[in-house]
Simulated assay, not measured.
Amino acid sequence: MQYEDEKIAALRIKEKKKHYNNTEKGIYIGEQLYKFSESLLFGETLHILLPDGFLQMPVEKIRGKYPSEFRPQVIISNESGMVNFTFSKFEQPASWEQLPDLLVNLQTAILNMNPSVLVFHRKQIEVKDKSVPWMDFKSYAMDGALYNYLFLYLSDKKPVLGMFNCPFSEREGWQYLFTKCLETIDEVMDLNERG
């Protein structure tokens, strides 16, 4: 009888988790429920929903995790520093039509710098009537294998490189959450545009 009770309890938990499958209600990863809040980026010109409890990574941690001087401009991380949301804005203007080619160039550069990278997908996702190119891949860092989810977006007519990463062993839940976060990205309209 105890076995049946355990099965019923497991089914109830599974059903409960199905209800939490978006940024409005929250998303479960394992036993942890993540709720979301708006984050403003690059002088409040861009906003995206990110999990609550993720904060700007402290400077001393940044230097250890991203030793290169070409580190991302914005690094938002969980407490352990194992799951990160990073953003960098390029100065060279671009158009939406150019972003897929720019992503191909980024993929080539990543593979040239690190041939051990394993690319899984390179696709586009529709986000508020915009076609956003993205790719995901496995890479290696000092703290083990990483799952990386990279995308390009335009803000103020300049490309923004977003990258989300987590330990590769945890990729299944996080990949879904990363996609749901990406679906919330948008430029902040200024007062003149609002009319």
Rank of each mutant, 00 (worst) to 15 (best):
M1E: 05
Y3E: 11
D5N: 10
E6I: 04
E6K: 03
K7R: 06
A9D: 01
R12M: 04
I13E: 01
K14L: 02
K17D: 01
K17S: 02
Y20S: 02
T23Y: 03
E24G: 00
E24Q: 08
K25A: 12
I27A: 08
Q32K: 15
Q32Y: 09
L33I: 08
Y34R: 10
K35A: 12
F36R: 11
S37W: 05
E38Y: 07
E38Q: 11
S39Q: 13
S39V: 13
S39M: 08
L41Q: 07
G43W: 04
G43S: 11
G43E: 14
L46N: 04
L46C: 09
H47M: 12
I48C: 04
L50E: 02
G53T: 05
L55H: 12
L55C: 01
L55W: 08
M57T: 06
M57Q: 07
M57I: 04
M57W: 03
P58H: 01
R63D: 12
K65H: 06
K65R: 08
S68A: 13
S68F: 03
F70T: 14
P72C: 03
P72T: 03
Q73T: 03
V74L: 10
I75M: 04
E79C: 02
S80M: 07
M82T: 15
V83H: 04
N84V: 06
T86Q: 05
T86L: 04
F87S: 02
S88N: 02
E91M: 09
E91H: 05
P93W: 14
A94V: 02
A94I: 02
Q98T: 06
P100K: 11
L103E: 07
V104Y: 13
V104C: 06
L106S: 07
Q107I: 15
T108G: 11
T108Y: 12
I110K: 08
I110S: 08
N112D: 15
S116F: 02
F120Y: 13
H121S: 12
R122Q: 15
K128W: 09
K130H: 14
K130D: 10
S131P: 00
S131A: 12
P133H: 10
P133Q: 12
P133W: 09
W134F: 15
M135Q: 13
K138L: 15
S139F: 03
Y140C: 03
A141F: 09
G144L: 07
A145Q: 11
L152Y: 04
L154Q: 13
K157I: 12
P159R: 07
V160Y: 01
V160M: 02
G162Q: 03
N165Y: 09
C166T: 15
P167V: 04
P167R: 05
E170K: 10
E170N: 10
R171C: 08
R171D: 05
Q175E: 14
Y176D: 07
F178S: 04
K180L: 09
E183R: 14
I185G: 03
I185N: 02
M189G: 06
M189E: 14
N192I: 13
E193Y: 11
E193N: 14
R194D: 13
G195T: 15
